[in-house]
């Protein structure tokens, strides 16, 4: 638990460092008159600044704590001074004057923050993090440089958040890296609350914050080394700055909206779609003031911030958005990638589109954990039209939301990819719920009853999720035992770590890469490097090219076992292993074996 507290304190210093660097970067733009927006703008700009610095340092082979810590320390010192000036003259909130239900919402948010910190303090076990969100930064840290991760096409996505995870690794350890996405989630919570308080009032702000953050889905997102909390932060800051531009005609706010739209596009291809949607909404909202200079004020910073990631892909693969649109994957990998994307949801017909809202509420498991998304977004966001003053802007915002949803519906129906919409929908839903409550007695009881019931359900589900991490964080369970329970095929990973060293090169079809200590390569997450149907010649040349000394494949993967048969190999071990199909429910897949071979004649 002491370590957890130390991690949390260091996360606080990280936020100060982001604030410090952001203060320096945004100094030419001057201060926003809105102090809270000003602080968040600086934190956001600082985070993007650190990510791009790490990206540049990585390609220059400078990923050493000795290079990172001085920048981190001096930025944190600037951040401390900036905090002093931001807080000067600010009056503390008078909680005694708040109605009890608002205090309950505030306490609920505090509870979720603690729950998410606790979950983040446990060793990293989320499958996508083990495959690349944490595994790739860990590899870069070990090599002291960024290199192309050819076997996983997802590694070509823009990696701003992964760079911040890498910063955490340089600062201390893997858990510290996992705090970066949590910090971004907390920052997006502040942005949602802040923006809603400016658009409406404190009641709306607290309710919007609870709808956005007090849900099991966000606990999972914030504590699993995922990228979406970062996109949510960037989108919410872009939207808040756009709101300021539309209301006050501040050019600096428009520039910042561009910066954060570009930041979203620099976090994942999904963020690019969110940024384009924001651009369209911005153009419609400010159509009467649309001039070429203003279009440039938004789009130039957006392009500048996002560009490095797309240029890197163009240089490495010839396709700036590899492996999409312009291709680049082999045929079977491209087909498997498409199959994986089509696997989620209920279908793509017009009827499916019509049924989408109802399925998201009542049958959302097929959307990949969609059942853990709060229903309050969908229940109350349409009710925003009950508030007369909100109708016109809400119509434009809803048009943007629907545009994004249609894109999501036809691309890949994964619930996670709806997170960029959540900040905006949370504000709409809070305005809608309060509009219903203010329309009459029945509306008040219905709104209060539904919000209370949903938030209470969320607390129960989120507590069940977080409970699995309590023993290991509290020191009542060993790290090794925890990893055995939560990480797929961990017995095999342990065997490999015991018997292989830095001079070996492992080829594996296992996706649990983070905890492998030796150099490794995979066949490709989708068979990107060596397709499953590849024959003897291709297999042998692949193994030769990469200097493979050992192969570890699952017994159930017959194509890979056939390919091992083409090689001069000797079976070293058969390790009984299990896949973890649900960490929370401790569900395991059927018994399998990891077959480990030595390649004869390899050195």
């Amino acid at each position: 638990l002491g370590e957890c507290i130390l991690h949390t304190l260091l996360a606080g210093v990280t936020a100060l460092a982001w604030l410090g660097l952001g203060s320096v970067l945004l100094a030419p733009l001057g201060h926003s008159p809105d102090r809270m927006l000003d602080a968040l703008n600086r934190i956001g700009a600082g985070a993007v600044g650190f990510a791009l610095l790490t990206f540049a340092a990585g390609w220059s082979g400078l990923l050493y704590p000795a290079a990172y810590l001085p920048v981190f320390g001096s930025s944190a010192a600037v951040g401390l001074v900036a905090t002093g000036s931001l807080l000067r003259g600010a009056s503390p909130p008078h909680f005694r004057s708040w109605p009890p239900w608002q205090l309950v919402l505030l306490a609920l948010l505090g509870f979720y923050v603690l729950l998410d910190i606790l979950s983040t303090c446990a060793p990293i076990t989320s499958p996508d993090a083990l495959l690349y969100h944490a595994a790739d930064p860990a590899r870069f840290e070990k090599d002291h440089r960024i290199s192309e991760v050819t076997w996983n096409s997802s590694s070509y996505e823009p990696f701003t958040v992964e760079m911040l995870v890498l910063d955490g690794f340089l600062l201390w350890d893997w858990v510290q890296g996992a705090f970066a996405p949590l910090l971004l989630a907390l920052a997006s919570l502040c942005a949602v609350v802040g923006a809603a308080s400016r658009i409406a009032d404190r009641a709306t702000a607290l309710l919007a914050g609870a709808i956005f953050f007090a849900q099991p889905f966000m606990s999972w997102e914030a504590s699993s080394v995922f990228v979406e909390p970062g996109i949510a932060f960037a989108v919410s800051l872009a939207a808040w700055n756009l709101f300021r531009f539309v209301r006050h005609d501040e050019l600096s706010a428009l520039i910042l909206a561009g910066v954060f739209s570009g930041a979203a596009a620099g976090m994942k291809y999904l963020g690019l779609i969110a940024a384009l949607t924001l651009g369209v909404a911005a153009a419609i909202l400010s159509r009467q003031r649309l001039r070429p200079a203003r279009v440039l004020a938004f789009s130039l910073p957006a392009v500048a911030v996002a560009l490095p990631w797309y240029v890197k892909n163009a240089v490495l693969t010839g396709n700036p958005i590899y492996p999409y649109v312009f291709g680049g994957l082999n045929e079977s990998a491209a087909a498997e990638l498409q199959d994986t994307r089509d696997m989620f949801g209920h279908g793509h017909s017009p009827l499916d589109l019509l049924l989408l809202p109802f399925r998201l509420l009542g049958d959302a498991e097929a959307f990949d954990a969609g059942e853990f998304i709060s229903p309050l977004f969908l229940i109350f966001a349409p009710l925003v039209f009950l508030a007369p003053r909100a109708r016109r802007p809400a119509a434009v915002i809803w048009a943007g939301v629907i545009l994004y949803m249609v894109g999501w519906f036809f691309a890949t129906q994964q619930a996670r990819f709806l997170v960029p919409l959540m900040p905006v929908l949370a504000v709409l839903a809070a305005v809608g719920a309060l509009a219903l409550a203010r329309r009459g007695e029945v509306g008040r009881w219905v709104a209060a009853g539904v919000v209370t019931a949903v938030l209470a359900t969320g607390v129960a589900v989120s507590s069940v999720y977080a409970a699995q991490f309590v023993p290991v964080v509290a020191g009542a369970e060993s790290r090794r035992n925890f990893l055995h329970e939560k990480v797929s095929y961990y017995d095999g990973v342990e065997w490999l770590n015991r018997h292989l060293g830095d001079d070996d090169m492992l080829l594996t079809d296992n996706w649990t890469l983070l905890y492998l200590d030796m150099p490794y390569i995979t066949f490709g997450t989708m068979g990107d490097l060596l397709p499953p149907e590849a024959g003897p010649e291709q297999t042998r040349s692949f193994v030769r090219k990469h200097g493979v000394t050992h192969v570890a494949v699952l017994k159930g993967h017959e194509n890979r076992r056939r390919q091992v048969g083409y090689l001069p190999s000797r079976l070293l071990a058969r390790i009984p292993v299990r896949a973890v199909t649900s960490r929370t429910l401790a569900e395991l897949g059927p018994p399998d074996e990891m077959l480990i071979y030595a390649i004869e004649g390899s050195t």
Partner: peptide, 30 residues
């Protein structure tokens, strides 16, 4: 008045759908 009634109806339907989903979730866990 009509939009108010429609809003209450939508909240009732949507909440019932979510309740149905949560019942299934609890049953699956059980």
């Amino acid at each position: 008045v009509r939009s108010y009634a429609l809003a209450v109806l939508w909240v009732a339907i949507a909440t019932a759908l979510y309740g149905w989903q949560m019942l299934h979730l609890v049953r699956d866990i059980g």
